[in-house]
């Protein structure tokens, strides 16, 4: 699983930076097109839910998602080890 912040919903309150036990969310510095500094993710693959949700088959931790007043935090499926064809250019 991959952790993402929905830029359309986030209002930049930075509560997520306060509640994550791994401090994965960091205060954002760049303003987006809505004028909001969306938090940056620091090595989000450390998140308990990213690592173990598929193994356990249920939501784990999720404190950031419950806390986020703007429903901006989600997880999306990803396949990190998908084989890629490498095209070699001569």
């Amino acid at each position: 699983m991959k952790l993402v912040i929905d830029e359309n919903r986030c209002k930049g309150c930075n509560l997520c930076t306060k509640v994550c036990p791994y401090h994965i969310f960091r205060e954002g510095k760049k303003l987006n097109r809505k004028g909001i500094a969306v938090p940056e993710l620091d090595r989000p693959e450390r998140c308990t839910n990213c690592r173990l949700r598929n193994l356990y088959g249920r939501q784990l931790c999720g404190v950031c998602q419950l806390t986020c007043p703007d429903q901006a935090i989600h997880w999306i499926d990803e396949e990190p080890y998908e084989p890629h064809k490498v095209a070699i250019e001569y």
Binding site: C13, L15, L66, C68, P69, D70, Q71, A72
Partner: peptide
């Protein structure tokens, strides 16, 4: 998940940035 109970087309909601109401609705 609880997110499926939201009317996604109505979000983002009108609460101010940092307002705690959204958190309580989540819970």
């Amino acid at each position: 998940s609880f997110e499926d109970w939201y009317r996604a087309d109505r979000l983002p909601h009108i609460f101010c940035a940092g307002c705690g109401n959204g958190t309580i609705i989540n819970c």
